[in-house]
Amino acid sequence: MTRDLHLVSTRSVAAVMPENGAVDCAALLDGLALPLDAASLPDATRQVIAACPSLPQPGGGHTLARWQFLAGLAGRDLSLVKIYEAHADALAILAEIGAPRTCAAGADSATPPIWAVWAARAPHDDLRFTHTRGSNDETRVLLSGTKPWCSGAAFVTHALVTCIDDEGRDWLAALPLDQPGVTVTGRGWEAVGMAATRSVEVEVRNAHATLIGASGAYLRRAGFWQGGAGIGACWYGAAAALAVHLRHAAQRRDDPHLHAHLGAADTALVAARAVLREAAQHLDAHPQDDAMTLALRVRAAVESAVETVLTACARGLGAGPYCRDAWFARMAADLPVFVRQSHAERDLAALAKAVAERGEDWAL
């Protein structure tokens, strides 16, 4: 076992993904049975990372391509995009903050690592570090504590984790998971929706890690809210995929109520799509701006579309696909859980405060 990090370069994006994001996700997932479960998700994740090891950097000129890829993958399987998006986010964070340049390969190049980002905090056992040791451009620490909500903990190889020092200051650390001080528990995940991600608690006791950036850098960076907006693309892709089933039904049945539900879904999705496209364009034009208001607006618009599509599918399609179509049933169960990454009214209140302070008049 090695404690060194193995980083995937983010400089080969053009080689793995067209700039318009038009990757054939069906071909990418060839040979996989959807929906995925906890047993098939690890291999599926490795298959996608092998084909597309990285995505364009948010705010780097091709944000829409990044989001189009995430939306396309989400439209196939939400557990898969949950893990892959975190992997891509981790690489974006490392590129933005600056990963230690002396990190050696900790795994064979034929099996690249799977990264996670675990930023949730345990209320009574927050992850903290002690015993710092610097060498060259690295600061190595020992981590102890508990991390909740650790998606993919059973098979990811490395995680970027938030932690605190003895003075309570926030830090980000890169934690290799294949070491004696890391224990993946079975606690904290009883979900039906998103069950395959097994987002359990991870116990960390005197585990070796490397600090990434300065104290507070994770939250201060421009990419924090850029990445938060990108989650909306995942929600959108799943909602659009469900709406396709609604459209297919409307093509077969001359039912005015079904058609009305399709009209509601279409209106919501087209509006959310416009918000996503405008946001991507703005981030590329102003990559260093504070994107909090933009991200909150994007997420709220897409969440509203998700709720409209879920209601339209339920009322327009009835119980049939929920009971007889394995893919539809899983997607319809997964999406309400995934979208709860939103903080609902708390986020809307924060958006309202920003809008009020700026004096938005919504001129066309």
Score class of each variant (00 low, 15 high):
Leu175Met: 01
Met331Val: 11
Asp255Ser: 06
Leu242Ile: 03
Gly359Val: 05
Leu143Phe: 05
Leu172Glu: 05
Ile114Leu: 12
Arg297His: 15
Ala271Thr: 13
Asp77Met: 03
Ala154Thr: 13
Pro180Lys: 08
Asp126Ala: 14
Pro112Thr: 09
Asp137Ala: 02
Ser79Glu: 01
Gly145Trp: 06
Pro100Asp: 10
Gly134Glu: 15
Thr102Trp: 13
Arg330Leu: 07
Gly186Asn: 11
Leu28Trp: 08
Pro53Lys: 10
Ser79Trp: 08
Cys313Pro: 10
Leu310Arg: 09
Ala214Val: 13
Gly98Lys: 04
Ser12Cys: 15
Leu276His: 03
Ser151Leu: 00
Ala268Phe: 07
Thr293Pro: 00
Ala295Thr: 02
Ala233Val: 06
Trp225Arg: 09
Pro123Lys: 08
Leu80Phe: 05
Leu258Ala: 01
Leu80Tyr: 05
Gln288Leu: 15
Phe224Pro: 03
Leu348Val: 02
Leu317Glu: 07
Arg340Trp: 10
Ala249Arg: 01
Ile164Glu: 13
Ala344His: 14
Arg315Gln: 15
His87Trp: 01
Trp67Ser: 05
Ile83Met: 02
Val184Asn: 04
Thr157Gln: 12
Ala120Val: 12
Gln68Arg: 15
Asp166His: 15
Glu85Ala: 12
Tyr322Met: 13
Ala344Leu: 14
Glu201Arg: 02
Ala22His: 13
Val117Leu: 09
Val339Met: 13
Gly181His: 05
Asp126Lys: 11
Pro321Ile: 03
Ser135Cys: 14
Arg273Tyr: 04
Lys147His: 00
Val156Tyr: 08
Glu85Tyr: 04
Asn20Asp: 14
Pro100Ala: 02
Pro176Met: 04
Leu160Tyr: 09
Gly223Lys: 04
Ile212Met: 00
Ala195Thr: 08
Ser215Ala: 15
Glu201Gln: 12
Ala15Asp: 15
Gly193Ser: 11
Arg128Thr: 12
Arg3Val: 14
Asp125Phe: 07
Thr111Tyr: 13
Asp325Ile: 10
Cys234Arg: 00
Trp225Ser: 06
Trp189Val: 08
His257Pro: 00
Leu258Phe: 09
Met1Thr: 12
Asp266Met: 12
Ala249Cys: 11
Gly31Tyr: 11
Ala272Pro: 00
Leu64Cys: 00
Arg66Glu: 05
Val48Trp: 05
His208Gly: 05
His6Asn: 14
Gly72Pro: 04
Ala312Gln: 12
Ser109Gly: 13
Ala295Glu: 08
Gly72Leu: 03
